[in-house]
Design a protein around this nucleic acid. Structure first.
Lengths: 346, 346
DNA sequence: CTGAAAGCGCTTACAG
DNA sequence: CTGAAAGCGCTTACAG
């Protein structure tokens, strides 16, 4: 069924030149006279010839493929944020003529899974990779970097010894938290609680520390009863509030959630308990999730631009792939407050 | 920086065997004595050796990669449905040890774009591809199939002459529409309108024809003023209703939307016009979008299982890749009514 | 059971 | 400006 594959020697024969010349026109070498180039191009187009990618890579070209690794235990398919990121990366790299091999890691502690990820790098299927959602200092990512692979990591601590093949991308979560606390303070809140994210990810502790610092700056007391555990997922926000309310202790007037998903869950739990947002309690999120605007109530949040981050990250990554240099690259993006209707003045 | 890459001759040398033998243990040939296998495996593991994928492919192995092509003019990143599909395919194929190269096609009429897609096939980056969201009989996909590539297509008409390398996957939209009309009829509706999808996609006309047939079956008259144009996107649902209401003509008591996104848009337009759903008008969607359940009101819809479809499709696709056969494969999945709160009895 | 050798389809110094 | 040749790292008949 499949048409006999045509290759460069066939093209060479048909064009009356050598394979070397065919290769030269394909790779846009300067020293090919226009006449020759034209002649060869005509045959190439006529026969719908495209050089075999594996042969090119084996002969020293790049795979022009980057790996996109999403660490996400179970929740990926429903999270629009992840979707945005996948699409962002695909479109960003395609502008450079690159492809993306997307991989989902359900359990980063599973040996088999880790082996598969490493395999992708070692097999040279990709020229570099981006990891999103990993625990801070995830060992196997560190290994990959130590091995010399070009890796972009989102939400990871900078290493003590900077490495030129590690590109770190973060948001200024510290500043984001300050904005959140300052905003609430401005509305008159003094009793502010927080639902934390996953403390194994860098943004977990970073946001919490930012919260503590911001509270101090505003001269507010942190009530440890109002510091709730979470994990960046909606369910964790729900559960945090659910079990908090069961205790029937004193309540904060405002809650800062580690991200918008957590805020959604928290609000759901509050509603179920008969508490209105923002009438009875104010809630502020983080990320500006696609659904936050349409949420009831529309969620006040700290906006973060993942698309912009990934655009910068992929650009640097591909730059490093094409031209490995010793300079250390890292990016930090600012966050900004988006006021909607989930917080009220007290 | 990068550790000297180790290759099979090096492994062979270290294990005291020939490259042939190394290859044999890697490829699990039967005729390797356990002792030898063990010896070689030890070296392989010790040196963290993974065979170079390009070399393997060039030597005749499969790329173990399938292409996932999403045709989606602009709206991809916000549509959770697309996300679900991407993730589904990735996870489905990874169960077979395959990878996916995801590609987004913004404009299938752009020559450059089409060339890029073809290139991916001709370069042998992938063993086969899946197209989602394409116009029915999209010419370049037909070309690819004619060329002999193994292709899975969602929502496409079966060809007159069946081809073994074309795998067609559809939902039984006809039955879905019948269920929708029958349900509304059961609630006492006789004045039923419809917002169509993109008529260039198979499901556009199929759903509409299903609607017409179902109306006839139920002995109902189709009012052409209530047949509105759309395109499967929310905005089109909004616009369809918006301009319909401006005309101030007679109104249907129920509307069937080509999919849930369209229904969301339609409901938004109705609300803006001061009409309540389902009090003033009933609306039923199609797909059972992830947001339909949380919508206000929760949307009654015809459920369709994309994950199941893609699971079957990828399974057949990979089967064909590994063992090309002449049998023609196609799948059709049933739809089912999900009753929620967007339709009322009249 | 195992090795030597050919071959997969390219690219790129090298020589002219 | 251009061709012959080596090399990329594998796999797989072939022969023993």
């Amino acid at each position: 069924m499949k048409k006999a594959d045509i290759n460069s020697v066939e093209i060479a024969r048909l064009a009356g030149v050598s394979r070397s010349t065919v290769s030269r026109v394909i790779n846009n070498y300067a020293n090919v006279p226009p006449k020759t180039r034209e002649k060869v191009m005509k045959v190439i187009q006529q026969y719908n010839y495209f050089p075999n990618a594996s042969a090119q890579v084996l002969a020293g070209k790049r795979a022009r493929t980057i790996g996109l690794f999403l660490i996400a235990p179970g929740h990926v398919s429903s999270d629009m944020l992840v979707n945005r990121m996948i699409v962002s990366v695909i479109e960003d790299v395609s502008a450079y003529g690159y492809y993306v091999l997307t991989h989902i890691i359900r359990d980063a502690s599973d040996q088999e899974t880790v082996r598969n990820v490493k395999e992708i790098f070692f097999q040279r299927r990709i020229d570099g990779g981006i990891f999103i959602g990993a625990a801070n200092r995830e060992p196997f990512i560190e290994e990959l970097i130590a091995e010399g692979f070009i890796v972009g990591v989102v939400d990871q601590q900078h290493p003590e010894i900077p490495q030129s093949n590690r590109i770190v991308a973060n948001f200024n979560n510290d500043s984001g938290m300050k904005q959140a606390v300052a905003y609430l303070t401005g509305l008159g809140h003094t009793r502010i609680g927080v639902i934390n994210g996953d403390m194994n990810r860098l943004s977990g502790p970073t946001k919490y520390e930012g919260f503590l610092k911001a509270m101090q700056l505003c001269g507010l007391q942190v009530n440890q009863d109002w510091v709730l555990d979470g994990s960046f997922h909606e369910e964790s926000g729900y559960e945090a509030i659910y079990s908090f309310l069961r205790k029937n202790g004193e309540r904060p007037t405002a809650i800062i959630a580690a991200n918008d998903s957590v805020a959604f869950g928290a609000i759901r739990a509050l509603k179920e308990h008969g508490l209105q947002v923002p009438e009875d309690i104010s809630v502020i999120g983080f990320d500006d999730h696609a659904l936050s605007e349409k949420h009831h109530p529309p969620l006040t949040t700290i906006r973060v631009d993942f698309s912009d981050m990934l655009k910068q990250l992929t650009s640097i990554l591909i730059g490093k792939i094409e031209q490995p240099t010793d300079d250390v690259k890292q990016i930090t993006l600012e966050c900004s407050l988006v006021v909607r209707d989930s917080c009220r003045r007290v």
